[in-house]
């Protein structure tokens, strides 16, 4: 009887995961295999893929050719990695105090504050990034405002050259991904029993010690989750750098996009995609090994 029931449970479980499984196989696993196959192919003069097995694309990515070593693509890869690290670090620094503030706000205000954090996401991503041009360009809001203010006290103002630039890309990335860090950090900060703060104070910890010994470790799971939600998309996004970086700021995402659309070399683009995926995976695995996914930090 019991075995039959368990059997039935197992079958029901299979039924429940089937739609997701089909979706994942059809739209993730198979395309991924196709990308891997393509990455070992060659481009014919018409921009079609010749399916063979060659490491040519990967060798080209590494910058090795008959003419010698050219670090062009390696620089793009390391630049993307650096930007993803910078974005993640700054998003944590900016988002943490806000998440903490929201988590400690009175219950009634909390939902309103969370709502306000999400409001920007209602506007299209591309439009919001375009809006930054209006703020950052030479004749933009920031330069005009500064010029006017300094003009009032009689100081000559040379407008800052902020757009397009790598700094503008970083600002755009931070702006775009901040909510994805705040929300998981808020969730884990909100779960901390306020009695723990009192216990720490009672045991002689001042505000700073309490933060580093109690608050920070207990909110680590949210930070880990937020990091994964921010780091991975930043590595692959090409719209922000496309809009705010001009033609000179090229990230892996842009490289891949251009191989498929402008250069019509899907084989090389596929190789770059695989390298991007491997790099992201490597960093994520290293990070998860080091900090965990947070499960051993929170008591069940």
């Amino acid at each position: 009887m019991l075995a039959k029931l368990r059997d039935k449970d197992a079958r029901r479980g299979l039924l429940l995961i089937t739609p997701t499984m089909l979706w994942m196989i059809g739209l993730l696993i198979i395309p991924l295999i196709l990308v891997v196959i393509t990455s070992f192919g060659q481009r014919d003069p018409n921009g079609n893929v010749i399916y063979t097995f060659t490491l040519e694309n990967y060798i080209r990515l590494a910058g090795i050719s008959a003419e010698g070593f050219d670090p062009l693509y390696l620089n793009i890869l390391t630049g993307s990695l650096l930007l993803a690290f910078q974005t993640t670090a700054l998003v944590i620094l900016i988002g943490y105090p806000l998440a903490y503030f929201v988590a400690r706000a009175p219950l009634k205000q909390r939902n309103l504050l969370l709502f306000l954090i999400l409001v920007p996401l209602w506007t299209n991503f591309v439009i919001r990034i375009y809006a930054w041009i209006m703020l950052l360009r030479k004749t933009g809001v920031i330069n005009s405002l500064l010029g006017w203010l300094l003009g009032l006290v009689g100081i000559q103002f040379t407008p800052f050259d902020m757009y397009p630039s790598s700094g503008a890309v970083l600002v755009g990335m931070i702006y775009e991904f901040l909510p994805f860090m705040i929300l998981p950090m808020y969730t884990s900060l909100e779960k901390i029993d306020p009695a723990l703060y009192e216990a720490a104070a009672d045991l002689g910890a001042n505000a700073i010690s309490t933060f580093f010994r109690v608050t920070l470790p207990l909110s680590a799971p949210g930070m880990v989750a937020g990091t994964i939600l921010v780091f991975i998309p930043v590595m692959g996004t090409f719209i922000v750098s496309d809009i705010l970086g001009g033609r000179t700021e090229i990230l892996v995402g842009n490289l891949i996009q251009r191989q498929f659309l402008d250069a019509r070399d899907p084989a090389f683009g596929s190789a770059a995609s695989i390298i991007l995926m491997v790099m992201t995976l490597a960093v994520t695995i290293f990070y998860a090994r080091r900090f965990g996914f947070g499960d051993e930090v929170i008591a069940p």
Partner: peptide, 27 residues
């Protein structure tokens, strides 16, 4: 509180969940 010569046993104990028993007591 952290400068008072008193200590408290809390209603729901308020033990630090991310620390071992030894770390809790040593805090």
């Amino acid at each position: 509180p952290y400068q008072r010569p008193v200590n408290t046993v809390f209603q729901n104990y308020a033990l630090f969940p991310h620390m071992t028993i030894g770390q809790n007591v040593a805090f």
